[in-house]
Structures are given as structure tokens and as C-alpha cells.
């Protein structure tokens, strides 16, 4: 008998989201299967980051309509920390600083919260340090950084690397990279992309939210969606990214204004 699993990892149906009474997302539909990389592109203010944050469970966004299923569960009913522990990871566009909390402690707590959730033994300090060192090489994370407070005194590039480093430690099923390329020079961009690609597994999926096509040269998407005014107005293969680069977003704007 052949068993075929067409498991949808993430399924977004007709999602409407408001913030402070202003409607940002106006009927999003999206399906992501394991192994896939989806890119979400669009001009500024189209709702890209809103989508990323809603999926991660940020409070101030109000879902007014629609549903989101993640690994067979109603994602919108889950607490943000449970979403994280179920394998949903958000690489933040602007990672926040937490003064006085050493990176190492933060990461150890995060990793052990995940392990507890999955009934695995918590790592001791020694075990964690060993685990951490393995992952550090992946994004060329300098060891001084892990001794600093969370994101404090990190350069823009270091913050973004730090996000991917955390992704490496937490081994998510679905990673959402929110403008991970912004503020990166070409070398840092390559390092980050290398990290993302190295972490890729057939059972995992990635959503890359980006304004530019640049990152997609290194992280090659299966599908590219264009988000405009809170709706996905176009979906196609990776060539769409190149088209956008060439024609600019005005092309999309014109098509949709008429």
C-alpha cells in the first residue's frame, strides 16, 4: 500500500487583520507544505511584517476574520510561546535588546523550554555550551557576542546573524524570516543565507519576507507571492522575483489600481 501524506504545514484562509481599527490584511490565502520555501514580496506598507507577526502571535494585531491552521492545529488559538515550541520561528526584522540578560542564559532558557515542552531532558550548562558551540560556526557567530546581553551593542548585521543562530539552536519546523536581509552587507547576507540553507530539511519549511530580490539569489524560493494592499495579488515561481526587480513594484501597482 502506498501511503501518501499531503500534509499542509501551514494553511491560511481568508485572513483579515486590523491594528487599532485599521485593516491591514484583507483576505490572505496561503498554503505552505513541508520542504517548501515561499517568498513574500511587496512594496512598503503592504502588510508583509503584519503577516509575519500575526503568525507569531503578536498581541496588538486583531484577527477579524479567517483561519490559520498550523500542523493540523488552530494556530490563532495558541499562545505565542506555544507556537514557538510547536516549531514556529520568527526571525525579527528589528531584534530587541534586553539589557542585563546574557545571551547564553537567554538561549539556554529558550532551548530548555522547548525541550521541556517535548518531554526531553533539559540540557545542563555544560551540555548546552557544547551544543551552542556547534551551532555558532554555522553563522560565524563570534563567541564574545554570546557573552553580551541579548542584542545589546550588536551591529545591525550581528543582530540578524544572531536571529539565524537562534533558529539553528531551536530547529524550527516553520521559519519566517522577516526582512532578514535589510541592513546586511553582501558578506553578511551570504553568511545568513548559508545558515538558512544549511538548516534546510525536507520536513521543514521557510517563509522569506523581503522587499528586495537580492536575498532570493541565495535562498531560492519555490513560490513567490506579491503582497499588495493587504492581499496576495500574484503568485508564481522564482522568476517572478526577477520580474519584480526589473519592472519595480509600480508594475504591480498599476495592474491593481485599474
Amino acid at each position: 500500500m502506498l501511503k501518501i501524506f499531503i500534509l499542509k504545514m501551514l494553511s491560511i484562509k481568508d485572513l483579515y487583520v486590523s491594528i487599532d481599527g485599521m485593516e491591514i490584511l484583507k483576505g490572505i490565502n496561503l498554503e505552505v507544505k513541508p520542504g517548501e520555501i515561499h517568498a513574500i514580496m511587496g512594496p512598503n506598507g503592504s502588510g508583509k511584517s503584519t503577516l509575519a507577526n500575526v503568525l507569531a502571535g503578536k498581541e496588538e494585531y486583531e484577527v477579524t476574520h479567517g483561519e490559520v491552521t498550523y500542523m493540523g492545529k488552530n494556530l490563532l488559538e495558541m499562545a505565542p510561546e506555544d507556537r514557538a515550541k510547536e516549531g514556529l520561528f520568527l526571525s525579527f526584522q528589528y531584534p530587541v535588546e534586553i539589557p542585563g540578560v546574557p545571551m547564553v542564559n537567554f538561549l539556554k532558557t529558550a532551548v530548555n523550554e522547548h525541550r521541556k515542552y517535548h518531554n526531553e531532558k533539559e540540557l545542563t550548562a555544560g551540555e548546552f555550551l557544547k551544543f551552542m558551540r556547534e551551532k555558532m560556526d554555522l553563522v560565524e557567530m563570534r563567541s564574545q557576542l554570546t557573552n553580551r546581553s541579548v542584542n545589546e551593542g550588536f551591529s545591525g548585521g550581528e543582530k540578524k546573524k544572531n536571529e539565524i543562530f537562534q533558529m539553528a539552536l531551536l530547529e524550527p519546523k516553520l521559519a519566517i524570516l522577516d526582512e532578514t536581509d535589510s541592513g546586511l552587507d553582501i558578506d553578511a547576507l551570504k553568511t545568513v543565507a548559508h545558515g538558512v540553507n544549511a538548516l534546510r530539511k525536507p520536513e521543514n519549511a521557510t517563509i522569506v519576507v523581503t522587499h528586495y530580490q537580492r536575498l532570493l539569489e541565495y535562498i531560492v524560493p519555490d513560490v513567490v507571492h506579491v503582497l499588495y494592499k493587504g492581499k496576495i495579488v500574484k503568485s508564481a515561481g522564482k522568476e517572478l522575483a526577477l520580474q519584480l526587480e526589473e519592472k519595480g513594484y509600480d508594475w504591480i501597482k498599476q495592474e491593481n489600481e485599474n
Binding site: E81, A84, V96, E113
Partner: peptide, 14 residues
């Protein structure tokens, strides 16, 4: 910062 708390939440910390 609510952002700080959310950042921790997103990493699995309640």
C-alpha cells in the same frame, strides 16, 4: 517593553 516580552515568547519563554 511589550516587544521584549514578545521576543521572549517567540523563543518559547512564557
Amino acid at each position: 517593553g511589550e516587544d521584549q516580552i514578545f521576543y521572549c515568547n517567540q523563543r518559547g519563554i512564557d
